[in-house]
């Protein structure tokens, strides 16, 4: 069966041990989490977790069943193949020198990225986009001197609400 990237959206009770339970379910069954993003929903007692996982449909079905069995899991939605917006964000700290500053500013303007902090020696660039866009951005910035970066997991939201909790 075809291995593909899957996006799963999970609503869970916002409790201290829930992340450990979810992560444990994955590691215990030999599944690997590719990216993860978590935050509270409009109901502060409920958190939404967006996971991306590589695997075939069989594996994904098994994961979903395991997740649904957990008591703190309220809902599991497979967004893979559904019409959904997917975004990652990355903060890139660039070493800035006199020589490449112009080039860097030009590049950032061209791609409509944002400088969110700058000092004589460094600046931090904020980029959001699809995972591929982020990969591209990193490739473009690499020759200009990346010092370090932090990248979020994918967040995703279906364009249409197919069920009660969205």
């Amino acid at each position: 069966m075809e291995i593909k990237e899957n996006t799963i959206s999970i609503l869970v009770n916002n409790k201290p041990d829930v992340m450990a339970r979810i992560a444990g379910t994955f590691s215990g069954r030999g599944f690997n989490i590719e990216t993860i993003a978590v935050n509270v929903t409009k109901d502060p007692n409920i958190s939404k977790i967006i996971l991306t996982i590589f695997g075939n449909q069989d594996t994904i079905t098994k994961i979903e069943k395991q997740l649904k069995r957990m008591l703190d899991v309220i809902q599991v939605d497979d967004l893979t193949g559904r019409d959904a917006i997917r975004r990652e964000m990355i903060l890139v700290r660039m070493k800035t020198t006199e020589e490449q500053r112009t080039q860097l500013t030009k590049t950032i303007d061209t791609y409509k990225w944002k400088i969110v902090s700058s000092s004589p020696d460094y600046c931090i660039v904020e980029i959001t986009g699809h995972r591929d866009d982020i990969e591209n951005a990193l490739a473009i910035l690499e020759p200009l001197g990346i010092d370090d970066f932090t990248r979020t997991g994918t967040v995703a939201l279906a364009r249409q609400n197919n069920n009660s909790r969205g």
Binding site: D17, A20, G24, G28, L71
Partner: peptide, 14 residues
């Protein structure tokens, strides 16, 4: 113990 038994209980509580 809740950490240790998480994968082998149906659920656990502290």
């Amino acid at each position: 113990i809740t950490g240790i038994t998480r994968p082998c209980t149906k659920h656990n509580f502290l």
